[in-house]
């Protein structure tokens, strides 16, 4: 059995976002890049599944679409425990473009993990698009996944509760929080081993984008917070009713 985990390379979640002077792209100066948080949880769960599979899962592969600078993120994924990394050498554009680049390398896996969205452009698109391109089933908002034989038991969040469902392979699992408790931190041994693991670079295919960002803007600054003393907390509720008109 083989697992593929899709990896996004995104600015650290504490990054103060700024754009270039034309407001057409992120100003990446000083940005620290990380594995997209949901992808990191997915990889953590994939490693747990492999370790508990008594050899049934032979391989966990990670794949990303990005230029050479994303290799640091892929090396981190290898240090966490992935056996092999694939990088498709192009700038990720829209979700359709990324999913189309991944489709030729994503065949033949029993289970594919994708994060529910990326914390940069919040597209929430690639996992579902790739499943459709591959013609396999997908399940989204996955917050738990167990493997037994060829059967996959999944916990997913639905609007109004949660469900336990059964699915079969091949499957695209689009995961959110809960899929793993904490993201795994690479150990020194893992970091050493990652250096000698294969990182395959594949040229991009030609695909036209369907959408593009024309420009970006920062939200307007908020007015100063109106403070009320602790012992007059009740007046705040009246302000919400009479002034803000939200009660």
């Amino acid at each position: 059995m083989k697992i593929l985990v899709l990896i996004g390379n995104v600015p650290d979640t504490t990054t103060k976002i700024k754009f270039n002077s034309e407001k057409t792209a992120l100003d990446a100066s000083g940005v620290q890049w990380i594995i997209n948080p949901w992808d990191e949880l997915a990889l953590t769960r994939a490693m747990e599944l492999k370790e508990n599979s008594a050899g049934a899962i032979e391989m966990v592969v990670v794949a990303t679409v990005g230029r050479q600078e994303t290799e640091a993120t892929l090396r981190k994924a290898l240090a966490i425990g992935a056996d092999k990394a694939i990088r498709i050498d192009t700038e990720p554009k829209d979700g359709f473009y990324v999913a189309s680049q991944l489709a030729p390398v994503a065949g033949g896996y029993d289970l594919i993990f994708a994060g529910i969205e990326a914390s940069d452009y919040n597209g929430a698109a690639v996992g579902g698009m790739l499943a459709e391109l591959l013609g396999i089933h997908s399940i989204s908002s996955v917050s738990g996944l167990q493997l037994e034989g060829g059967q996959i038991t999944i916990n997913r969040e639905i609007d109004g509760g949660s469900q336990t469902v059964k699915m079969t392979t091949p499957l695209m699992a689009i995961v959110q929080k809960g899929i793993a408790k904490e993201p795994r931190i690479p150990a020194m041994r893992g970091i050493m081993m990652a250096r000698s693991k294969p990182l395959e670079v594949i040229p991009a295919i030609e695909v036209d984008v369907l959408t593009s960002f024309e420009s970006f803007s920062l939200p307007p600054a908020k007015a100063a917070c109106k403070k009320v003393p602790e012992d007059q907390a009740k007046t705040l509720i009246y302000m919400l009713r009479d002034e803000a008109k939200v009660l």
Binding site: I17, F19, L26, Y121, S212, F213, S215, S217, L218, P219
Partner: peptide, 12 residues
């Protein structure tokens, strides 16, 4: 975009 830290104008 960027988890509510910015707004993007998207062309389809």
């Amino acid at each position: 975009v960027f988890t509510n830290k910015a707004v993007g104008k998207v062309l389809v």
